[in-house]
Design a protein around this nucleic acid. Structure first.
Lengths: 248, 248
DNA sequence: AGAAATATTTGACTGACGGTCAAAATAGGG
DNA sequence: CCCTATTTTGACCGTCAGTCAAATATTTCT
């Protein structure tokens, strides 16, 4: 190991600390104002550095926002992996991931919209290659957490291998989850569907897909209310008010 | 009825024709380049009018894009309503709407991403009130088409009233459909899920939700392949290659 | 038909913003 | 304390949405 000058190390630390500071403020602005309604000058003012300094950390505004999104996605992946280790039958563990995703959505309410923004080609191509890869990596972790449970469920016999493949089943759960989180944010749909709680419909829809996949035990042949209590107690003891989200 | 000068009528016609022209070109640009990668000057050049004239029709670029999106949404609502009149059991008619939505997605591939863009507050508030209402109206038509079938399915006894309300069921179908259309466009997910055809996973996921809702007849107790053939023949005789989308 | 009045179209201009880079400021080493 | 290397800065550039006074076209009036 070659020795590194302490001042270099300190510089490195300060650089990383500053990057964190920038990301934190960018996250706040994204949350408060979305993407358009703030500019790099404003962010520079907030972190007490000049605009030029921001561009030493990020190649573009889009690159910065991608970093914020990837940080959130990493949180999501962490929660997914933790939830997937919940003790219980495969479908209970899948349910734990459903809770994890709601917990995540409560922490990062704007995440799914930002994620949708990323999809626009012009956005994606303005970000740096390194950050694009990091984002793909965290996304893959989320996919894998769900997919592993499904593969295991099929191995154990909780989930039939026909007519849906493990990949189809994973895709279905991911789609219904993201779709529900997006739709639940729509004021018009909220009114039409009579939605008051944001999390319940998401998990309700996941239940439908799991029942549709014939994932044992079905919703009506098992006491999932008890599972839910355990999930909240064991995985999210000091989290948002899950009581509201658990009505039948 | 008061008489209207013929020149006024002609002006009106010309104005509307020009609006159509602008919308058509804007749609093309949106399709080819997304939202950012073109500007109003470019569009003005394409329609052979000056920028100022564009702003006689639309209050902002966002207002114009909302109009394009609402036109597409109207198409979607038209297809939904036509599909909902398909002859058959309630679940077959729901299936027809599933096809209608895929048909729509094939015609307007960028629609769902544009729709997600609209959700960002800054976008929405730059559009004119009239266009916002028009959009909400067409959205409500789509919702109603699905909801009516579900209400009827419950009345007829094809769909249990418990444990999901008609609104919950409608919300679930809408969520899984939009979510699937969005996810199916993701290159990463396409690879991970091994998706080649864009439409099949959407309808497969709808099937899961319908089965999860206990909507009779279940997927495995009815010859839906025959239904699908009828839907294609009766509703979309000269449409995109549905053969590829119909594998089991 | 021609002039006056009215309506429409235009594109130069403004302000805002993302991104750059030469100059200023700062830190480090001798 | 000075000289060099590194970092920070903010004036500046190009782009683009949106405006509006002037130019152009159209209709009306005599």
């Amino acid at each position: 190991m070659s020795a590194v000058s302490p001042s270099i190390q300190r510089k490195e630390r300060e650089f990383l600390a500053r990057e964190e500071l920038i990301i934190t403020h960018a996250r706040r602005l994204l949350l408060e104002k979305g993407f358009q309604a703030w500019n790099m000058e404003e962010l520079a003012g907030a972190v007490q550095y000049s605009k030029g300094t921001l561009y030493q950390h990020f190649t573009s505004k889009e690159d910065l926002v991608l970093e914020v999104a990837t940080d959130a996605l990493k949180q999501r992946a962490d929660l997914f992996e933790r939830a997937s280790r919940f003790q219980g039958r495969t479908r209970e563990r899948c349910r734990a991931i459903g809770f994890a995703c709601c917990e995540f959505a409560a922490n990062c309410p704007e995440y799914f919209h930002i994620e949708m923004m990323l999809k626009s080609a012009s956005f994606w191509e303005k970000a740096s290659e390194a950050r694009r890869q990091a984002h793909a990596f965290q996304g893959a972790r989320c996919w894998r957490a769900v997919n592993h449970i499904i593969v295991e469920a099929m191995a154990v016999g909780d989930l039939p291998r026909e007519p849906y493949s493990a990949e189809q089943a994973t895709f279905a759960l991911v789609s219904v989850t993201v779709g529900s989180h997006l739709m639940v944010q729509e004021p018009h749909l909220r009114v039409q569907a009579g939605i008051t709680n944001e999390m319940m419909p998401v998990r309700v829809n996941q239940d439908m897909v799991c029942d549709g996949l014939k994932w044992r035990p079905f919703l009506n042949e098992f006491d999932y209310a008890e599972t839910d209590r355990r999930i909240v107690k064991e995985l999210f003891p000091n989290a948002v008010n899950w009581h509201h989200a658990m009505g039948g």
